[in-house]
Amino acid sequence: MTLAVAIDANMREITVWTRGVTLAKEARDVATLMAKAGGVEGLYVQSFDNYVDLPDRINVACKSYARLSPEPIETYYEYENYHPDVVVVTEETMVKGHNILEGCKPGTVVVINTARDPQKLLKYISPKEKLANVKAIATIDANALGMNVMLTFDGTEGAGDDTTIGAGVGAAIAGAVAKATGYAKLESLLKVAENKDAVKLGWDKVTVLAL
């Protein structure tokens, strides 16, 4: 039987693609910061790492997720964001060889950490048939934001983060995501991130290409 019900119909899903160990903590920070900022704004939120990926293997592809909903989240125990509204790529080469748009909803925003022209990256993004669902591609060169925006390393495996949240590149990317999507106010992000300069830089320097 299929009941015609829309479960978590108003929930927005943010999927952050990253590489194991080298950028796993930063990607988790992007998801955690977006969820926490949503929490500040009174939304029901959840953020988690993909359990099936192997984030303790250096450079393997892995994902972190955030969810924001005006109603209590009913699909709380899920492995993945099956229908992302936002796809974040924290390392530019990941646009190749990974179906980052899998399941994405109409109106999806893609945010890539890169110095490259988004038009040039566009041709690599797959699956191709999902490109029609993409509303905009935003780029932020978070790695070039200066000495105070560093990479942080930490594994959690179900426990809490030891280090502060949003101390590095992830904070800048979160700033870019918030501005490109409108999912969080700058003030909310500043409240929850450790490195407030990085958030501001990300917010200011993001460029958005509407498709």
């Binding site: 359990y51 959690t156 495996e157 179900g158 426990a159 809490g160 030891d162």
Partner: peptide
């Protein structure tokens, strides 16, 4: 998935 409890207690 047991690992984190030992990490948490060690900490």
């Amino acid at each position: 998935p047991y690992t984190a409890v030992m990490a948490e207690v060690a900490k």
